[in-house]
Amino acid sequence: MISLLRKMRKTGRVAEPAPEPAAGDTVPAAAELGGSVQIRHIDAGSCNGCEVEIASAFGPVYDAERYGARLVASPRHADALLVTGPVTRNMEVALRRTHEAVPEPRLVIALGDCARDCGVFAGAYGVAGAVKDVLPVDAEVPGCPPKPEAIVEALRGLTGR
């Protein structure tokens, strides 16, 4: 406990200063959420590269939570789904059910090239399609994997902060 406190004192604040919000990139459907977006992440068949970048986007350096975005543990608590990877056949039904479980208004973010258009997995036998083939997508983040800065910027587009 003491060593943890000492570590905290020694490390200090590592978060990068907040960049100016990019203008014009906001999602109109997110306006009703009032700047607080609870996010449930779903791996629909990702290689886990995107997950590493999401982890750093919500880590101490990029600290996406200061803009009002938060990862939650259940779709019942969520406003938005953050989907990574191409939608594999095994995950298609689960993805639909998860979307069904989110209370309205609900948003879907397709994160990474695979989620946007199947990326290198396009046409593979186990892939059912991109996220937009299964669910209505509200926001997309390009990149393979997308940089944490890009993820944070897309989330700021939802929260409007």
């Binding site: 779709p75 019942r76 039904v93 689960a94 059910r97 998860t98 069904e100 479980a101 309205e104």
Partner: peptide, 15 residues
């Protein structure tokens, strides 16, 4: 204000 919507019991997408 929003109308009630019947939904499936949340079973982690499996069940």
């Amino acid at each position: 204000r929003r109308a009630r919507r019947p939904a499936r019991l949340w079973d982690c997408g499996a069940g």
